[in-house]
Amino acid sequence: MPEKWTISNIVAVQVGAAPCWQVSLTRPDGSVGNHVMPTSALEWRAAEYGIDPTDVDTLLDILLHEPHMPTTDDPQHGPRYADDGPDLWTADTTTAAREAHAARIKTCPVQINVRAAKPVDVIRAGHRPDPARLRGMREVVDTNRWIKKHGDLPVPPKPTVEDPVPVSNAPAGPRGRN
């Protein structure tokens, strides 16, 4: 039977230069722990798992359960989730990664009811995903997944090197023109 924790408070905090959310979680014995996460974590999970970036409840559900998901140490690849499902980097598709992660939440030994939590209203009201930043995050995730699965990009990116000789100063062509 999973242990049920409740969200008792959420406040905005600054950690260095990063704006963060501090989520206070109350355990059944009455003790309180805090989960601090950058506000950008919501956008990262949306980009990673193909979730609507405005669906704060689903994104927080993932973020608050992740630290409690059972893991195991794989001597060859390092820590991984204890189940046999794919992770973000080994899944064939974003949908497969999202479904495996959702299954982990359902079987997590700690359960946190995000949807019924009134304190989440502060994040619901303040979360404003940036579409351009999300596109960039998705590109990073997709590129890293490809590299992890295949070892390299299919075509190396072209270097962004400026032409050392501007066209106006380039040597003349065969007829004295460029």
Rank of each mutant, 00 (worst) to 15 (best):
P2H: 12
K4G: 00
K4C: 06
W5N: 04
V11P: 01
V13S: 04
V15R: 06
A17G: 01
A18S: 11
L25M: 10
P28C: 03
D29W: 05
D29I: 01
P38Q: 13
A41T: 15
A41V: 09
G50T: 06
G50D: 13
D55Q: 11
D57W: 09
L59D: 01
D61T: 14
L63W: 02
L64I: 09
H65I: 06
P67N: 04
H68K: 11
H68D: 15
H68Y: 15
T71Y: 03
P79C: 07
D84E: 12
D87Q: 05
T90G: 00
T94L: 03
A103N: 11
I105H: 10
T107A: 15
T107L: 09
P109Q: 09
Q111G: 02
A116H: 07
K118D: 11
P119I: 07
D121P: 10
I123K: 03
H127P: 01
D130C: 00
D130F: 09
R133P: 00
R133Q: 12
M137H: 06
V140A: 13
V141Y: 14
T143F: 05
K148D: 13
K148Q: 10
K149N: 13
G151H: 03
P154S: 02
K158P: 00
V161K: 07
P164A: 00
V167Y: 14
G173E: 13
R175D: 15
